[in-house]
Design a protein around this nucleic acid. Sequence first.
DNA 1: GCTAACATGTAATCCGTTACATGATTAT
DNA 2: ATAATCATGTAACGGATTACATGTTAGC
Lengths: 185, 185
Amino acid sequence: MKRRPLLESALLGLLAQRPMTGYGLRRIFATTPMGLFSDSPGSVYPALARLERDGLVRASRQKAARPGGRLLEPTRRGRAELRRWLSLPVTREDVARRMDELLLRFAFLDQHPDAAAVERFLAALAEEAAAYAKELRAQARKLEAAPASTGRLALEHGIAAYRATARWARRARDAWRKSHASDAI
Amino acid sequence: MKRRPLLESALLGLLAQRPMTGYGLRRIFATTPMGLFSDSPGSVYPALARLERDGLVRASRQKAARPGGRLLEPTRRGRAELRRWLSLPVTREDVARRMDELLLRFAFLDQHPDAAAVERFLAALAEEAAAYAKELRAQARKLEAAPASTGRLALEHGIAAYRATARWARRARDAWRKSHASDAI
DNA sequence: GCTAACATGTAATCCGTTACATGATTAT
DNA sequence: ATAATCATGTAACGGATTACATGTTAGC
């Protein structure tokens, strides 16, 4: 049960949205707010080679727009692997230490075949983020330094950030419900 | 000008607060919200060995509370290196891709000899975080998908998070001013 | 004709993770 | 006695970063 590197999941998710070349993927990392990933060839091409080796992605030189290019798309196994990843539960551990993975998963979650997955994810995230904010608040109360230390203030940043995440999750859930209400009738 | 690994800065900052053993440092990572670092011996001891090799940390078996233990403390060069790191400016790049490093720096910033450093840091962070939130908002306007996609909603999480950071920075600055007002008279 | 953009890779190095390995001391 | 805690390390492996290396095509 080793965790797949985030970069590979990001590549797989992007290719499931739209097949493209390695260069196209790199451009996305370079020009959009997905820029927490490096667009360097030395990270992207080896990761794609691993996905091909594992049979999750297939390349075609014929379908590429230019000679030399390789159009990449997920295989059936690749799409199954993506669904498996998207179906993972939202745990306290994820919230405390892997928020970026959670956000990445969520960004691809509208590709999940189960339409209810988005609402479930947001409900779980709202709950876990609020609960973790409370945990941090409890930690902060233990410190109680008379002149506020920057350590204490940094902890309060964490509290504020998790509260903002919980608030966002509740609002996103409402927005999602409204814009997908027609399906429910 | 290679960037020092975050873990090494964290270790150096903690040792500057209070000399302790490698085990003590690991316990901090295991039991406090600084848990974004691994407490595994395979990460901590090699990092400490690098700091010793570079002359930033010195170990004493005599000063240790128990036989076998090694009490670690920063050298003069180590403290200078810590000050240098704490003095780095808050850039847009940092805000966009290295928030965890910024927060770590801030958590140690009350060790900085220049008392004004904390206020300067918070002012810069408030400004850069708000500006970056605006950048993201501009990105979001370009998407304008009729039914909100989860990708779009994920971007809105980013906006909410950076706004929360900016708000926290302004409030922390006010709090810091008040609790240190006596120094200014 | 030249420059920017398109396109794919490899090599060296460093760091983090996991698992392994060992031993002393304190509390029950 | 024996378990938990204190304490320090090494080895194997994998992945990320940076730099290097190369070639094509489209637009000016």
